[in-house]
Nucleic acid binder design. Structure first.
Lengths: 405, 405
DNA sequence: TAAATAATTAATTAATTTAAGTAATTGAAA
DNA sequence: TTTCAATTACTTAAATTAATTAATTATTTA
């Protein structure tokens, strides 16, 4: 079943223009009609007409007068962001995290709910529903119409059908979470893989703003990437694009849980780093801050290593530097294959700051081809812990600000 | 300088519809107006009007009547392919190869010219011009209007400006080959990296037909990829996307010419394979067919190894199998990162057939994640030796069949 | 000859652009 | 301080484009 050939009609043309104007107001607002006409190259009457409709819908409002430059003062337009609510949910295997926000991306409420081990699909969805319900109340109290719910879910997701095809860490398959939430709350629900959602979050509110080709790389228990090409997320026909954690960086490397050998994840993800540190300590390496950690201890975590490094522990610093170099190799591959303008790092490693980032950047400089390496900037995410949930609600916004078919 | 916001106008809408109809005629023709209306969801008068313009331009012609299904017989329309000429040039470091073809992709003439070592930019361009001149004659003799020239050039190319930014094998930089040819021949010239051009060739005339997400992988002296996502070539902001040859597959691997260590190219490209075979023979490996080749001999080539394998030489077979496995690791990375629907292999390795392809496919099955691996089909190119030159002239066609801004 | 399908023509409609205003503001001369 | 030309912002009205809808003509089958 191939999708039908795209053709133009009046309504379609108008929806394109409407969306273009809406996005100009969002990105360059407060902005006058005259200025919109200038940047979109639409004529002023067209802008006037479409803006009238946007004002009618309540999505856009007139704000202050701008300064005159020798003529009538412009009437500035802006998105009426605070008047509408959206909800973003990060649905992980350990916890479900819901955010209430307005269209400006300002969050007004959040909830964290724990997920019990090995839940059924029904149990899991009802936790998500409960989290949404809690933050939805805040939106209701503010009299903001709820425009939609976005869900960032770990694992394999079909964003078209709104189905979690496979959530490996939950051992669940084929949860039609989109339709289940739509039924419950009566608003549109967008479902997406968590890392890809995060990439959209970066694109709207983070380091990806105004950049058409970038990759958002999340390093935690795994290593995942959300690839944005020409302003659009890359999914691939089976929705698995971006599995950076499972690229081979060492043919002779150890077996990974995925069945492959020498995966980046097996070198650079948090568990791999911890494992490497533990083995070294067992083998007799000395660390002034980590030696107290017993052999079978669970206290040797990524955070503990970061902390030790901050205290100046040479062993911990070395472990982090190695991690940075491994990640750098993975990112070099990304740079050589994709030539992105930016790579945005998030997750646990970012907390480790320069210990990881320094060697990482240096490795990319050394190992990636010089031309794409010179044009890529590698930066930590500024969205913080809530990045994936922020990404989730931007899915709703993205849909809203897109041309409606 | 950011490109202006895309908005709709009447002309733009019409050009979209015109292009849509043109492409339907190309891909599904011979086809009637009524059928075009059905597949494009445009109304029949719209189709009639636009088709009238296409007939006027000569690009489309009415052909036979179709069969009636109980009513007036449909008038079938098709692209008047044989009436127009295009030229495709593969501009390599050793040879320049020009093809004359019509819009159906049927080549009518070809020229091969050798390139002397270390030519100046002027010398090189004049060889390209000479090659074009020779095949242009054929097009002139056939009274086909020449619609354009496409150039597939090795190295780093700016397809927007039509400039060869860096041609490493020629040691040349910043050749404005597009404008130079436009001046000489007075027709539009498209310039593109050779492997990316090849990918477009696959998309139009090869294994990429009807597929939106695929990667064309060329293995020769290097390993390059042309990535097609959502029907469009991926360039990246510095035009270097697709450098598959320089992804790291072995952190402990040997130094590559690019400065990186353990590049795929250093394992799987033809020179690497030959080098590996030579070292083994020197170290005492025995081969019934290759032993006669002396130590410093230039006779130990990829072709010789293929030939020996075909004759049943176990040593040669093993060398090829290894190459297949290395390539398989590189392609697994591609599959995990991009999730393409198809990977199309071309270049020297394809000649080796199942010796390489078998282990290659098996490696991808074993090492790539199961979901994307299940959905990707890996096939050899059917375009043959002339693939890159075919790709070059499809650049012209692609431009022609695109909506004109 | 009736029914069905293909293609065209005529009339209508949607949404743009062009042209021509009105509104508001600056700035400089009176 | 007043007045008025120049400038900029926005709106309205008419013209234009290219779509759609409705009606018609042209074939062809049964």
């Amino acid at each position: 079943m191939s999708r039908s050939i795209p053709t133009g009609s009046f309504q379609w043309m108008k929806s394109i223009n409407k969306s273009a104007i809406l996005n100009v107001i969002r990105l360059q607002g407060p902005i006058s009609r005259a200025e919109i006409a200038k940047v979109t190259k639409l004529t002023s009457p067209t802008v006037t007409n479409i803006v009238a409709e946007l004002l009618e819908s309540g999505l856009v409002v007139e704000s202050d007068r701008g300064v005159s430059t020798g003529g009538r003062k412009p009437i500035l337009l802006k998105i009426n962001g605070s008047a509408f609510g959206v909800i973003g949910v990060y649905a992980g295997a350990r916890k479900v995290e819901a955010l209430a926000a307005d269209l400006d991306g300002n969050t007004s409420d959040e909830t964290h709910l724990p997920v019990p081990p090995r839940p059924t699909a029904e149990q899991f969805v009802s936790i998500v529903k409960e989290a949404v319900r809690q933050v939805a109340e805040k939106i209701q109290n503010k009299n903001q119409p709820l425009l939609g719910i976005g869900v960032g879910m770990h694992g394999l997701v079909d964003p078209v059908q709104g189905v979690s095809i496979y959530a490996p860490n939950l051992y669940l398959r084929d949860i039609p979470i989109g339709s289940m939430l739509e039924e419950e709350f009566g608003v549109p629900v967008e479902v997406e893989n968590d890392v890809r959602a995060l990439a959209m979050g970066e694109s709207w509110f983070g380091q990806g703003q105004g950049i058409d080709d970038f990759v958002s790389v999340h390093v935690g228990t795994g290593v995942g990437a959300g690839i944005v090409f020409d302003g659009r997320l890359v999914h691939g026909p089976s929705f698995t694009a971006g599995e950076l954690g499972h690229i081979t960086i060492d043919i002779h490397g150890p077996l990974c849980s995925c069945g492959n050998y020498g995966c980046l994840e097996a070198f650079a993800a948090a568990p791999a780093m911890v494992k490497r540190a533990r083995e070294r300590l067992r083998a007799g390496a000395s660390s002034s801050f980590l030696d107290w950690i017993g052999d079978a201890s669970d206290s040797l975590t990524g955070e503990a290593i970061f902390e030790a490094a901050r205290q100046g522990d040479a062993f911990a610093i070395k472990v982090l530097e190695e991690t940075g170099r491994y990640l750098g190799i993975g990112l070099s591959n990304l740079v050589n294959l994709f030539n992105p303008r930016k790579i945005i790092l998030s997750g646990g490693v970012v907390a480790a700051g320069a210990f990881v980032l320094g060697p990482l950047k240096q490795t990319v400089r050394e190992r990636a081809l010089s031309t794409p390496a010179a044009d890529v900037s590698i930066v930590p995410s500024t969205l913080g812990e809530k990045g994936r949930a922020i990404g989730a609600f931007t899915l709703v916004m993205q849909k809203l600000f897109q041309p409606q078919p």
